[in-house]
Design a protein around this nucleic acid. Structure first.
Lengths: 260, 260
DNA sequence: CGGAGGTTTGAGAGGCGTCAACCTCCGTGG
DNA sequence: CCACGGAGGTTGACGCCTCTCAAACCTCCG
């Protein structure tokens, strides 16, 4: 099985043994974690919670004592400008440790809210301190997970600074497709994404109206369709080209490099 | 001395005892590090190197075995688009651990180059592994340092996604002023910054021509001047307002900036 | 059946990019 | 001493991309 390149690129999440954390780092180094480390992480979850769609989870500046791993659904992090317009700074998918960076820092510099309905595993920071005291290698994996977030932030900076509306949207879809494929939630360029056009606008630094026009353009070029939260990438190579997308920054383990 | 609020907000770097790492986390939690931790870090540096201005340090994708802390000078991290246009994703100042995130990840997803001439301390990754094995609290400080980078990335995303040209430039200067003050390299809104107008354009997602016009507008509004790499903020409150700048995200331990 | 939220389309305005010219400054070399 | 060249700064004209404002339509759901 492990020799089949297809199976390598889309490993099956082991959700039976690890129902909460089975997608953590899946596709980006989970296979270098030992069974013991995976077990320690799984058993460190303090509780499991569910929240409805469009629900506020954490507000900027609040002291935080828990960190959340996303099990099911989609979560976004965002900042509001003076007039209340919103800028998304990241979108999280199952397996992501949404606010693990609140552990070393003790508070968040932005807001967190659900997109669709979600299920999350909560980790008390005292438990995480215990992990850093006793399991340095697992600690480096957790650290690594926060750094992949930073890598995605950088790519978003590039996207907003250097691409036009079509490139920004194309890049956004390319990234989500690649990440969802790693955790087994996208297949052949098809996946669910509970976003509206105004949401896309907030992620890409555009207005809802212009997102609408640009989506039509992408559709008419035969690159992708997006309707009712359902994405279909029709021409992956073409979309990547418009997006100037190169998945290296996702640190996937089917890429060319290995961490540590 | 420590009771004087003025002195608290701009602590003097202890460069005599810690010539290499004396500005690390200065103003953002260094005072919570123990003397032993500061000593361990200082003594962990493998070597010290100097580089000229506009010198390439690390290329995207290269395996890295050392991480660099900036002692003197300015360094930038950037990504190039298909036509060779560049987007800066961060600017580093003395005390910054420039590519510490290359430690858990083993490679970089972007390029690093000097702006002016620099002096850097290099840390071998094997030494850093030793720190994570033996000094969990110091490890959390290092982790924290990489997360403040991520916080700045998020602010850059906001800046590019939601602000116009004037706001982007204003925000850029506000951030650098706040950070340089924390390490004692800016005083009363005045500091050196070895950048050209095209460099500013690459940091703010603009063109050099438009940066020129926008700088003139900011100057004519009495907000700031920028000439020959010398910045003078004339109206800090006004500049922050244009920038929608709030320094919370810098995790500084002296709270908001006090204008002169 | 009516309302709310999301999508689609149009018209007009403005911000920013592009192209181009000219300037100053400064180091180099004749 | 001046000629030269290159890099960066400054300004103008023009055009396109995206925003703003507005209205119609569509779909879902109470």
């Amino acid at each position: 099985m492990r020799d089949d390149p297809e199976a390598m690129s889309v490993p099956a999440p082991d959700l039976a043994a690890y129902p909460l954390t089975g997608r953590f780092l899946l596709g980006r180094g989970r296979d270098r974690m030992t069974a013991e480390q995976m077990r320690i992480l799984e058993d460190s979850a303090t509780e499991v919670k569910e929240y409805p769609a469009r629900h506020h989870l954490v507000r900027r500046g609040e002291p935080v004592h828990m960190s959340m791993m996303l099990i099911d659904g989609y979560v976004s992090r965002y900042m509001d400008d003076r007039e209340g317009y919103r800028q998304l700074v990241s979108v999280h998918i199952p397996g992501d440790f949404v606010d693990l960076h609140g552990f070393p820092t003790g508070r968040l510099d932005h807001d967190i809210g659900t997109l669709g309905p979600v299920k999350m595993a909560l980790f008390d920071h005292r438990t995480l301190v215990g992990i850093t005291e006793q399991h340095p290698q697992l600690t480096r994996f957790l650290w690594f997970a926060t750094l992949t977030d930073a890598a995605m932030h950088r790519e978003w900076i590039f996207r907003l600074g250097r691409l036009g509306a079509d490139g920004r949207l194309a890049h956004f879809f390319c990234e989500l497709n690649a990440r969802l494929e790693m955790v087994g939630l996208a297949h052949g360029g098809t996946f669910e994404l509970p976003l509206t056009q105004p949401d896309l606008a907030e992620a890409c630094g555009l207005t809802g109206v212009h997102v609408n026009r640009t989506l039509r353009a992408l559709r008419e070029q035969g690159l992708l369709t997006f309707r009712n939260g359902h994405v279909e990438i029709l021409d992956h190579a073409g979309l990547c080209s418009v997006a100037e997308f190169d998945s290296d920054y996702l640190y996937s383990d089917c890429g060319k490099w290995k961490p540590i």
